Amino acid sequence: MQKFVGMGVALVTPFNDDLSVDFNALKNLVEFNIENGTNYLVINGTTGESATITKEEKTAIINTIIEVNNGRLPLVLGVGGANTQVVIEELQTLDLSNIDAILSVAPYYSKPTQEGFYQHFKAIANATTKDIILYNVPGRTAKNMEPATTIRLAKDFKNIVAVKEAGNHQQQYYSLLKDKPADFLIISGDDDLTLGAVLAGGSGVISVIGQAFPKEFSRMIQLGLEGKNKQAFAIHYSLMDIVSYIFEENNPSGIKAVLKNLNITSDKVRLPLVPASDDLQIKIANFMADFYN
């Protein structure tokens, strides 16, 4: 599972002014990340506004990224949801031949029990031979998948190879790292807690901020994996403010404001999201000006 060690990035979906998908910006974003140290790409995650992407757009986005990537980096595709059967049907009908793993978010809204989480992912694991990265993000799903459930799934299914843990709770990382099978990866989904998780034994991150600072953030992860704490924390501290800013209002409006500042994408998002406020845009612009001066 070395292909998922390091920094993956949860790619945004760039939009034109009319809110159609901006495929040219998407190509530029992918190339920017490949050229600057990103280790793998995550397509159609929550940061990619998957909730408002049509089936046809999703197919076009996948095909565009596959074409631009041209086999250079591993690709992870978001396939998840609250309806287990629909997730299974999607897995069985999508062309996954160029996809290295799927990222499957814990069911949202329904707030299942821990047994419900287990049975949901058991059904998914039995429906595909692809590697599966679980995604625990209680801030979006309204229910935490507890470490014991994650570890149970890791032990019971060979194709469940990792978890993207985004509970924003350091102790939960420690519980996962303490009890996980030797070859199971704990991947951070919290940009602000990533370095601490890596230094404790984690395998890296699926990052939001990383797609705007791929060189710096991937370097921080590599230093952390090598146990070079002092150098890694120097980068962590240099990016602390911008990591806080991008999540201040909502994701991905914050990161799109950063990418707009870099002239990579627009800051357009689809309702019910709205672009970052003027005040936040100013804070981001000031940070970027200081960072590059």
Rank of each mutant, 00 (worst) to 15 (best):
A10H: 04
L11H: 01
T13W: 04
L26E: 02
K27H: 08
N36H: 15
T38M: 06
N39E: 07
V42L: 15
T46V: 12
E49F: 05
T52N: 04
K58Q: 15
T59P: 06
I61K: 04
I62P: 02
T64I: 11
T64A: 13
I65S: 10
E67H: 15
N70R: 12
G71H: 13
L73Y: 07
G80E: 05
G81Q: 09
G81Y: 07
A82R: 08
V87G: 00
E90N: 13
L91G: 03
D95P: 08
L96I: 01
I99D: 06
I99A: 07
D100R: 13
Y108Q: 01
E115H: 11
E115N: 13
F117H: 08
A125K: 03
K130H: 15
I133T: 07
Y135Q: 01
V137M: 00
P138F: 10
R140V: 07
N144V: 09
P147N: 13
T150L: 08
V163C: 03
V163D: 00
E165W: 04
Q171W: 11
S175R: 13
D179L: 08
P181A: 15
P181W: 08
S188L: 04
T194E: 04
A200H: 06
G201A: 14
G201N: 04
V205M: 01
V208D: 00
G227L: 10
V243P: 00
Y245Q: 08
Y245K: 07
A257Q: 14
V258K: 01
L259K: 06
K260R: 12
N261H: 13
N263F: 10
N263T: 11
V274A: 15
P275R: 12
D279W: 09
K283L: 11
K283S: 06
I284L: 06
A289P: 01
F291W: 08
